[in-house]
Design a protein around this nucleic acid. Structure first.
Lengths: 221, 221
DNA sequence: ACCTGAACACCGTTCAAGT
DNA sequence: ACCTGAACACCGTTCAAGT
């Protein structure tokens, strides 16, 4: 109560930095959705005008790239001495976990093809696991592509069907029942959607992919 | 040469309809990219002011939904009397083909979770194939989710790395060589990217998934 | 060196006005 | 019934001006 700025100081005290801007952008996207993020709103969140951001960040795409990197840097990397199948499982689960906490990241990564150091470090580790397992270049690419598609596909579906959105689920249900006559198979699978456990489904598919890749490992190694 | 409107008439003659608007939007997105599409530009393409579009279309999202449906309606549906594995292969190849002709459709479908009749009809057929094959609800969902993730993941990567973009490839190559020291596995796989055949890779992974699903088919049927 | 206000060129969309 | 012009509330971004 000594001054009117007291309750704002914890956030406005330190000077603006690229990292603070990106951390604020991640928080904003987590709580309001990435589509609502704008330079003006992000500036307001940091107690500053929108134009000040351009002193620490190149443009909005630079912020997007930073947000993606921020998430990938937070994904823990498992012990490299484990068998490759176990490492792949742990990497996949850790990625799914991070993608679940930041549901916007999969779409953003696909929109912006620009990989920063965080994404590259994550990829390099995963590719190294496959290389150490004995796969050659071509099979490493097969494996990476399959694992990435599977993980991002499931993470996206999980993000699109979060548990909290009961209202949108009701909409979906009513819309499905409307078209049940014309699209019976869709209606039947749609009602299953509400009760499915995405992480179990993810692991089921991951096992199929690992088995398929394993059967293709060059037998000499 | 009878009048100054002669060369515009073929496109401006017929009255505006929802279908004409959506077809024009698809063409525009194919040639200029979906990010460049705006109501004003789309109106100009049709020889009309932007605001006229709202007489035949609810809003821009409605156009997006129509574009997605337009693409899915164009995907041919294979003979339902074939064995399910063959049908799955043909559906996957046909979808990959359509996604390749309209590289924006995968991202758009993920952004807008709103499925129109074209998407629903495509899904209903594919789910019907799996049901006829003898899978139960849970396995149908597993199978659909894996096949969709695989197909959309590969289609997206193929769209992100089209053959024509030699300039962006050069950028990628130079950027990769810059970080080759820090991320050797990424650099090695990155140089393989330029020479890989996406449709072959897609089919390789599709076979792994089909085999994995097949081994899980209830043995009674 | 960093922040700001005003401005620019764009959006999607509404609405009253034209025919 | 369909198209239009002007306007509104937003964008991202630039730039000269402040301190």
């Amino acid at each position: 109560m000594s001054s009117q700025t007291s309750n704002l100081e914890p956030t406005t005290r330190h000077p603006l930095t690229r990292e603070r801007i990106i951390a604020a952008a991640v928080d904003y996207a987590d709580s309001h959705g990435v589509d609502d993020l704008s330079m003006r709103k992000l500036g307001a969140e940091l107690g500053v005008e929108a134009m000040s951001l351009y002193n620490h960040v190149e443009n909005k795409d630079d912020i997007y790239d930073g947000m993606i990197d921020h998430v990938f840097e937070s994904i823990p990397i498992p012990d490299r001495s484990l068998p490759w199948q176990g490492q792949v499982r742990l990497i996949g689960e850790a990625a799914m976990d991070a993608f679940g906490r930041h549901p916007w990241v999969v779409l953003l990564l696909m929109q912006r093809g620009n990989f920063g150091p965080g994404v590259l470090a994550f990829m390099d580790n995963a590719l190294g696991v496959l290389r150490d397992a004995g796969f050659g270049d071509e099979d490493i690419h097969h494996a990476w592509q399959m694992l990435a598609s599977h993980t991002m596909g499931y993470a996206f579906q999980q993000g699109a069907n979060p548990e909290g959105r009961t209202k949108e689920y009701a909409d979906l249900e009513s819309r499905l029942s409307q078209v049940a006559g014309r699209f019976p198979n869709v209606a039947r699978i749609g009602s299953y959607l509400a009760e499915c456990r995405w992480d179990q489904e993810y692991l089921f598919g991951l096992e199929i992919i690992i088995d398929g890749l394993e059967s293709r490992l060059p037998p000499t190694t």
